[in-house]
Design a protein around this nucleic acid. Sequence first.
DNA 1: CGGTATCCCATTGGATACTG
DNA 2: CAGTATCCAATGGGATACCG
Lengths: 149, 149
Amino acid sequence: MNTRNPARDPLADHVSLKDRMQRGELFSADCPSRAVLKHITSRWGVLLLVALLGGTHRFSDLRRKVGGVSEKMLAQTLQELEGDGLVIRKSYDVVPPHVDYTLSPLGLEAAQRIETLTDWIEMSLPRIMAARQEKEEGKEDAKEGRAGK
Amino acid sequence: MNTRNPARDPLADHVSLKDRMQRGELFSADCPSRAVLKHITSRWGVLLLVALLGGTHRFSDLRRKVGGVSEKMLAQTLQELEGDGLVIRKSYDVVPPHVDYTLSPLGLEAAQRIETLTDWIEMSLPRIMAARQEKEEGKEDAKEGRAGK
DNA sequence: CGGTATCCCATTGGATACTG
DNA sequence: CAGTATCCAATGGGATACCG
């Protein structure tokens, strides 16, 4: 977890020491990892990855499970994830049509990390809401203006 | 908005409710956690949280560190994160102005989970690119169409 | 320096209709 | 059922100018 800890698991050695110290190339605007990050953290990408942790789903299963997603965005996001090799699409040429979506091994790794985040959000929601509340109340004081705080 | 309201039978509600309890309320379109998720996984939110793992930064530090972010989006995203209690803004009323941004304890927890994801992406980038490549080559074959895969 | 305000274009994304 | 196509509204996001 703590990346500042020098003794990490061996897998992390893929990333150079330089990257560790500078926090990776992610901060550079033209790094290709930005594109992948965008797909994975996209509005529907996050939810689809987590949904697929529940196993194989059909198109309409996902549409029903992920509240608020349109057909267009569902199809588009699934294509992005498939393009990155995170989701596997299996189409059976029957009538009526039948298409299955499943996490690839790569997608499973990504989804598990996403789930860690979404679980944390749901668990921490009360604390976040409380922080928001305090901020509203603090509006009265405000204008301390001086250094402190 | 669930258009095409299913008007499903009462029995179906059992399933829906069960699903939500198993995997949280994140899948429901109107859950407040969706908003938090949006802030954290936003294009610049992700990068700012990871950047702030490096410690306190000034506005211009962040602008320099996070490649491609505009003043407008930097200010806006920082406000969202501050609003969720993830980032603490300290303003010193001096000339020239001086403002510090730091992760709150809550923000630290979120940022660490985001970092797990971004680290994974950078580490897995070769595998993802490879998957993309295979897909391009597979375009020739395509049209298997049959059941199987 | 650290913003806010304004303008405006590009992209996202929803609703609907249609197709294999 | 699982999409694609089209249209259109909302949002994202850059550039510039200005203020405390």
